[in-house]
Amino acid sequence: MIKFGYTILYVEDVEESVTFYENAFGFHRKFISPEHDYGELITGTTTLAFASKSLASQNFTDGFIESSLEDKPFAIEIGFIVENVPEVLQKATSFGAVIVSEPVEKPWGQVVAYVRDLNGFLIEICTEVENVV
C-alpha cells in the first residue's frame, strides 16, 4: 500500500511561507528545523511542507524551475476544501495571496476560486465535491 504523505514547496523563506499559510488559511505549524530550511504544517492526513531553495539545490544538483509570482504558475495546484469560499478568499488575500480567479460555481455544484501564494504557487479554494450521480 502507498500512502500520500506530503507535498513539499521549495521557497526562498521557509519561516515566511509557514507564517503566510498559518495566517491566510488557519493551519498550525508542526515544526520548523533549527536551520529554518524545512518546515511542516498540520493540514490533515497529508502534510504540507516547505523546504528552502538552498536545500533543494543540494538535492537536485542539475537545478530546478523556481516558482515566482512574476512567472506563470506551474501546471499543478494545491486544493483546500472549505465551507465558505468567498470568506477564505478574502482572508487569504488580506495576507498577500493574489487572486487568479474569483469564485465560480461549477456545473456539478462545487464553488471554486484560485489564488497564488507569496511564492507564486497556485492554490484552489473550493467547496467539497458532492456525490455526483
Results as ranks from 00 to 15, higher is better:
N84S: 13
L55N: 05
V112Y: 02
D71F: 08
K106G: 00
E35P: 02
I32H: 06
E35K: 12
G120H: 05
N84T: 09
G79W: 02
T61E: 11
E128G: 04
E128T: 04
I8W: 02
K91D: 03
S57Y: 06
V100I: 15
G109P: 03
E77Q: 11
V14W: 02
E22C: 12
I8D: 05
E128S: 07
E83K: 11
L48P: 00
I123C: 01
S17R: 02
Q90H: 07
K30R: 10
V85L: 11
F50K: 01
V98G: 09
L69E: 13
K91A: 02
G44P: 06
F20R: 03
V133C: 14
A56C: 06
L118E: 01
V111R: 08
I32Y: 03
E15G: 07
S67A: 14
S17D: 09
V85T: 12
V18A: 10
G26S: 10
S57R: 12
V82E: 05
V133Y: 11
F60S: 09
V100R: 05
G109W: 06
T127S: 10
T19E: 13
V132M: 12
A97K: 01
H28K: 15
L48A: 01
N59M: 15
E22M: 14
Y6K: 13
T46S: 11
H36L: 02
F25R: 04
A92Q: 08
E130M: 14
F74I: 04
T61M: 07
R116M: 00
G96E: 09
S68K: 09
S33G: 02
A75K: 10
E12T: 15
M1G: 13
F64C: 05
E66T: 10
F31M: 13
D71E: 12
P107F: 09
P73C: 06
Y10L: 02
A49D: 09
D37F: 02
S67Y: 01
F27K: 08
